[in-house]
Amino acid sequence: MAEKETVKRMVKLIFPQNLIREPVTFQMAKKYDIVPNIRRARVTETVGELVLELEGKEDNVEKGIKYLLEKGVEVKPIVGDIVD
């Protein structure tokens, strides 16, 4: 059986205040064997924004993103909404 393909996905994570101090990204990475390659971050008093690349097996990356969503982190493509 062929190995599942490794993918890289550029995403923006938006953390609500209650999650800014929690290591959710780290937990997600560990849990699903994903390499999070952080490129940029902005944090204010009430919200945090992290721009990064997630690298891992395709279904793991999907699961990792789902995990973040369930935790309450918004996961958005870095190019913004394309449908105009």
Binding site: I14, R42, V43, T44, T46, V47, G48, E49, E74, K76, P77, V79, G80, D81, D84
Partner: peptide, 26 residues
């Protein structure tokens, strides 16, 4: 709010041409 982080929203408006919840250049 004076916040430089743009929080994405789910659009609900009759102004469809402006209904971008996650603006690329927000």
């Amino acid at each position: 709010e004076g916040s430089e982080i743009i929080k994405p929203v789910k659009p609900k408006t009759i102004a469809k041409s402006l209904a971008i919840g996650n603006p690329a250049d927000g």
